[in-house]
Design a protein around this nucleic acid. Structure first.
Lengths: 210, 210
DNA sequence: ACAAAGAATGAATAGTGATTCACTACTTAT
DNA sequence: ATAAGTAGTGAATCACTATTCATTCTTTGT
């Protein structure tokens, strides 16, 4: 026998894979999944199209992986916000704000994650992604109930409603068909938007006018 | 000149068009948009595939029309529920219930309308559809504020949150990948589901625990 | 340096189903 | 009956890229 995979090769392959992932991420962040072509991705990553298939089963699998990665970042940020100090209500509010503000800051990627029509395997990831948020919120709501800052309620159901309310509120503003506004106006509008989403959500949770 | 379109012909064409629409509706209600093939639709409607294109620009246009029709039915039902007697809060609650219960009764079509990945033209219709619900809710919320049964709030924002909360809560249960349950258990679960969605929504609106 | 094995290439292919269009069959007015 | 125009047909075409794979290039151990 002559050739045996070495550490060096393993690393080189890992690098190539990483380049592919990064370039796909970039393509998606620019134009969504639908318009991300394998040939373009390969070109950007500096590999042949066939090489993509040495690293991923199919375009759909590649996209599913990108979705998972992009998602994990976001979910982690929300988890972080939930791990800060303060009572459950304060922490949850921070988390909701984090979710919404980050989405508005990277609108195309956020739209792809939340609302772009995607293939079945990617859609599955999306369900998992929404579930992940809901799980985080659910735990926080449970803590809130124990702490006494939320009335007793179906925490799972409430968490789902939170995810839906935020996502729906963002779909319009994130939509790629939205006209552009000046940076200043946009930021102001976004603040207002985020605040009113949060108000509705917190009222829904606490049953208390604020 | 010899041939001139007559009433008889107009009617015959209208009939064919209706058959096409009905069969498409049926196909979508059975398996969603993605799996509805033009050839199958033509076969069911008893016309040649080419004939479809004498009535609709493209598959996407046909689907957009089906979406619009299916949607209109649902929106009308919600509007009906909002036009009953009682204060705004009661009427809104009836409307939310109507929305959710009808969706759970025709799950495949509801899933297609709410969550199935679709082509751009159809997606546009979906945005309009969600907007239509939001508009109805918005009006009702405004009335509620005037009547004094809801505290002052951003009615547009709240209505968007309502749509999102319901839709998100339904996506899981409607998802075609969901395992089947016995009819009895399912109905019970659905009742519980609808009730907890409504509780969250009404709390979000009123800021009052219930 | 050589042979064995793997990695990379990218032009050619394939699969899919929507869409077309040359043709036939009808309908209508004279 | 005839001519002129319209509706209907469905096999053939098209469009679109993801995917393949025969070939070339690299790496490795002896």
């Amino acid at each position: 026998m002559a050739y045996r995979e070495t550490e060096k090769m393993r690393q080189r392959k890992a690098q190539a894979r990483k380049r592919i992932v990064d370039c796909t991420y970039q393509c998606v962040a620019e134009g969504g999944f639908r318009s991300a072509r394998i040939t373009r991705i390969a070109g950007l990553a500096g590999v042949a199209t066939g090489t993509i298939y040495r690293h991923f089963e199919s375009r759909e699998d590649l996209f599913a992986e990108i979705f998972r990665l992009a998602t994990q970042r976001e979910v982690d940020k929300v988890a972080e916000a939930l791990a800060t100090t303060g009572n459950a209500s304060e922490r949850l509010e921070r988390a909701l704000r984090q979710f919404a503000e980050r989405a508005l800051k990277g609108p195309m990627m956020a739209w792809s994650l939340i609302a772009e029509p995607v293939d079945p395997k990617v859609e599955e990831e999306r369900l998992a992604y929404r579930k992940a948020y809901a799980n985080l919120f659910e735990t926080a709501i449970r803590e809130g109930i124990d702490e006494g800052c939320f009335p007793d309620q179906d925490a799972r159901q409430s968490s789902t409603c939170l995810v839906g309310a935020i996502a729906e509120s963002l779909v319009g503003p994130l939509s790629p068909t939205q006209a552009h506004q000046s940076a200043r106006t946009k930021d102001d509008n976004n603040d207002l938007l985020v605040n009113s989403i949060i108000r509705f959500c917190m009222q829904g949770l606490t049953g208390t006018r604020r």
